[in-house]
Design a binder for these strands. Structure first.
Lengths: 366, 366
DNA sequence: CTGTTAGCGCATTCAG
DNA sequence: CTGAATGCGCTAACAG
């Protein structure tokens, strides 16, 4: 019914082993034979049986990309960048990886589930993107599972989240990096956030509201830490009331920003700036401010994070911190394919640059 | 090294067939045996070898979801809805499908490539979402490949695109539906667009600009057709200059709307309304109008399409046509799993409802 | 209800 | 450079 290697072999007048060799291209085959085989493949419309070859070779061409939210452009950009590196070899060719995105919805359970599903498929690699859930039980479970996968030959790349915690159970010196083949590309969230807050402080702002991302997420924590550190360094007096000026948004979405800004306004009607966990949240903040009759940046300055495409388009254009999402995703893809040598220590930090635009300005004179 | 079915069988003191049966749960097994096996599975941390089982069973648990643009929320919503239906059976269980999204970037070639990759994996199902590229060579190639897949046991669902063209080569009567097991959920783009334009005409608008989506896409064409039909029915005089008032946007993105609106204003400074191919484009239109000093809806009314979450949040809230994206995606998922019986004729049309909001109003009196 | 027996389609030794 | 033979890990008859 379905055409197999043997069919192609018969048609080309060679053995199936030879067909396999030309298809995988990792073995010398005479030119004449090769073309004959290729022609047969074409005429028969032969398509490799993935499972069979995965079984025999003990490795598949599946590459999983785990994202927290497919509907969020942040992940869309990273995912498509990862995929962009998987093109190779043309359609017929082997080596064609099937890059595939798995939507965890930010749920630790689904993250784990996908990981076993991918393990079951003997995935060639898996790339985990975006912030990690910081809950001890989950993170050790996750680390365990990832190390299992890595041990089974699956390449693991973390993109946009912190490195795995050191192996559980061992009481070694903490500075020893994982050393387990898991490569990490982590964003400089603390640094970027620090620079953004410093920018506001330099403009003269002292009462700066902050709407965080969801709790228990590494990114949420790091960005807040960077903010607080800048405050501590440049305006210790502002740090004192930082807690009161911080609202915990429940998600990285617009309504978190909208509601958060209203709450901030309630707590401190005299604030002169609001920083948000990311650009989407920032847009919600802007909407709330406008609904309250406040002008941006004349009355209140606003800052975001990520620099998604719409940030520059917003009105006013949003001051934010740029994360080179596409670049990082592409690099993660190459790392996943083993096309690029891992950074020393298997951890690299990706820069986060301040982008000053129209949504921030000096506070209005009182 | 890696633990296999046989290892589990040995440990549980049964045959490997029995282990297979409890794992797949589709065969009677004594309760005592079952628990013994399950315990062994657990102790050994056994994970099924997907490729091996796919090879033996001639079908895998992979479900592919093809989307035109992962970074676009339209697809994110549909994709996550499809995935939401794949939960089943708990983590250990078999039957767990690996739903996986493939980003074609709107490229016909990548679409075809993914299809062969999925065929190679013997995917259980594939769901193609969003508008189809309307180019004869490609659509027949696509239809061919899909029918191959279907013949090979892969379930095919089209969601948000028109049904496949009738089988090439046969000169049968056109009304005969495909009858090849490909199920289609098509959106009522023409009808929705018709209702939106009718709404504007009823308000009194006569000079209505239109910014289309990318050329060669089914969705682009259908929406434009609905618009023109409404014009023809209710305002034949307006239809006459419809061509001049139509700008072809190059993509479903914001800048297409921005540039398109500027071009429209150049051609017809006196237009009173602008319709866009979708909400994202509409937002670009709004930005351009505002930059030109025009108020919405006092000076110009604006309408979108899709009703993505941000449409209701925009200011002013966008009048648009609501597509039940989540509902349609979930249904596509169930259809892909064979959990729901296909509609008669294997084609169902999904409704598109007009959502009147603040961005449309009667034209200003002259 | 459970064990035995064959392959599934391909990648690899190992010989030629 | 090429062919023949073996087995990857599992499922599906087929017996018991």
């Amino acid at each position: 019914m379905t055409v197999t290697l043997a069919d192609v072999a018969a048609r080309a007048g060679v053995s199936s082993a030879t067909v396999s060799r030309v298809l995988n291209g990792n073995y010398p085959v005479a030119d004449g034979t090769r073309t004959r085989v290729l022609r047969a493949v074409d005429e028969l419309q032969y398509v490799v049986n993935g499972p069979a070859s995965a079984l025999a070779a003990a490795t598949s061409d599946l590459v999983g990309i785990l994202v927290n939210d497919v509907a969020d452009p942040f992940f869309g950009i990273v995912a498509s960048a990862v995929q962009s590196e998987m093109g190779g070899e043309g359609v017929t060719g082997a080596g064609q990886k099937l890059a595939v995105v798995c939507n965890t919805g930010g749920s630790p359970e689904r993250e784990l589930t996908y990981l076993t599903l991918l393990r079951r498929q003997r995935a060639a690699a898996v790339v985990l993107t975006g912030s990690a859930v910081e809950e001890t039980a989950h993170s050790t479970a996750l680390a365990d599972r990832l190390r299992h996968l890595a041990a089974g030959g699956t390449r693991i790349v973390l993109c946009g989240r912190p490195p795995l915690p050191p192996r559980s159970g061992t009481t070694e010196q903490p500075p020893a990096p994982a050393e387990d083949g898991v490569v990490t590309l982590t964003f400089d969230n603390r640094g970027g956030s620090h620079r953004l807050t410093a920018h506001l402080l330099t403009l003269g702002h002292r009462r700066i509201g902050y709407v965080t991302g969801p709790a228990d997420r590494s990114t949420t924590r790091h960005r807040l830490e960077g903010h607080r550190r800048a405050l501590g360094e440049q305006a210790p007096e502002a740090l004192a009331e930082a807690e009161r000026l911080t609202v915990h948004g429940g998600a990285y979405d617009r309504s978190a920003g909208y509601d958060g800004a209203l709450e901030l306004l309630r707590r401190a009607p005299d604030l002169t700036a609001v920083l948000a966990a990311n650009d989407t949240v920032a847009l919600g903040v802007c909407a709330a401010l406008r609904d309250r009759g406040l002008r941006i940046p004349e009355d209140v300055s606003v800052g975001g994070f990520d620099d998604l495409p719409f940030a520059a388009d917003a009105s006013p254009a949003l001051t934010t911190v740029r994360l080179p999402l596409h670049e990082a995703g592409a690099r993660a893809g190459r790392l996943a394919l083993g096309l690029e040598t891992p950074p020393p220590g298997d951890v690299a930090t990706v820069r986060a640059d301040l982008m000053v635009r129209a949504s921030t300005a000096p506070p209005a004179p009182r």
